[in-house]
């Protein structure tokens, strides 16, 4: 009589155990994988990377900085640094930690894999941009230089990662840092976002939530101690200086200036026509190529033809064919205003 009840309970327990084990990100298996990653080698490599970033940004780097960045205790940080010294990768002078040439090239190898992987995730997969950095943090410790070269060749030897950071070449070359911070712009100035710092994560995700991305053209309206106000994609955007400091801007030579008046494809009402100005840089890789294949390139006339039952997707007439696009895509295609 009670048999089905016992079986039912056993069944539920098995399912709970499986969920407990395999739940993505939080399950036991995911945790074990993560804790295995926190090995000494990884700490050493992360420390080198941090030291290199300090050097590149011309900031003095201290032991406390290392401990804070790797979220480890000061004792552990001392441990790591002395290990790095004994390997001949770091010189410790008074309060300052300096990379040796060997340490620099080691750090650049890690950074190269990290940025290549971010570029790969952005262009070839549908993983969301919030996760690029996290995934690259894992993979950077696993690929050999040979594998990194193969990967680079496969994605067209890119020179910038999707955040706008330069990717070190095979021989460890990097361009001199250029551009200025968003907070240093003058009102009325035009510029392109060339870099968005992806650490700390909390600030990065706020910037992403605003819809800002490297390559985007912006026009500054007002700069003050309290807020930075500028136009991006035809919309006004306000950031606090604390956040704006994580954005670097610069002027690109080959880029033509997008006129001030433009609107998104999704703003077209059925029956209205427009001329395409361009596709946002945030539509990448396969998505971008597909749109171009369909004839969505600058100068082409496009007309909103038909709304589906729920209003999304909308069918557009372009080059004599009718193509349905989702709102999420149409938001990122610009028309002459």
């Amino acid at each position: 009589m009670n048999e089905p009840i016992i079986l039912l309970i056993i069944g539920i327990i098995i399912i709970l155990i499986l969920v407990f084990l395999f739940y993505p990100g939080k399950g036991i298996i995911a945790r074990v994988k993560r804790s295995k990653n926190a090995s000494k080698k990884i700490l050493i490599e992360d420390a080198l990377k941090y030291l290199y970033n300090c050097e590149y940004n011309q900031v003095v780097c201290s032991l406390n900085g290392v401990a804070g960045n790797l979220s480890i205790s000061a004792d552990d940080a001392t441990d790591i640094i002395s290990k790095l010294e004994s390997l001949g990768l770091v010189d410790a002078k008074k309060n300052e930690l300096v990379l040796t040439p060997d340490g620099r090239s080691y750090a650049l190898r890690i950074i190269r894999v990290h940025r290549l992987w971010e570029k790969y995730l952005a262009d070839e997969t549908s993983i969301s941009e919030n996760e690029w950095h996290k995934k690259a943090e894992e993979i950077e410790h696993m690929l050999t230089p040979e594998q990194a070269n193969l990967l680079a060749a496969q994605i067209g030897n890119p020179v910038f990662d999707p955040h706008g950071d330069p990717i070190p070449s095979e021989n460890g070359e990097l361009p001199i840092k250029k551009g200025k911070l968003l907070t240093e712009m003058q009102p009325g100035e035009f510029a392109n976002i060339i870099h968005i710092e992806d650490e700390p994560y909390a600030i990065y995700s706020q910037i992403i939530a605003e819809g800002l991305y490297p390559g985007m053209q912006i026009r500054m309206i007002a700069v003050s101690d309290k807020r930075i106000k500028f136009v991006a994609n035809g919309e006004e955007c306000v950031l606090s200086p604390l956040i704006a400091k994580n954005i670097t801007v610069g002027i690109k030579k080959l880029e033509k200036k997008i006129s001030e008046n433009y609107k998104t494809l999704s703003s077209l009402k059925v029956g209205e026509q427009g001329t395409i100005l361009g596709i946002a840089k945030s539509l990448r890789g396969q998505q971008r190529r597909r749109l171009m294949d369909l004839g969505i390139v600058p100068g082409t006339k496009i007309e909103a033809e038909l709304e589906s039952v729920t209003g999304d997707p909308v069918a557009y007439r372009v080059r004599g064919t009718t193509v349905a696009l989702r709102k999420q895509q149409a938001d990122r295609i610009y028309l002459e205003g």
Partner: peptide
């Protein structure tokens, strides 16, 4: 789409032929 296939490439377009 949330687990196993999270990372696979994705691009939407739908042609409506006459």
């Amino acid at each position: 789409s949330k687990t196993l296939l999270k990372g696979e490439a994705s691009a939407f377009s739908l042609e409506l032929p006459p």
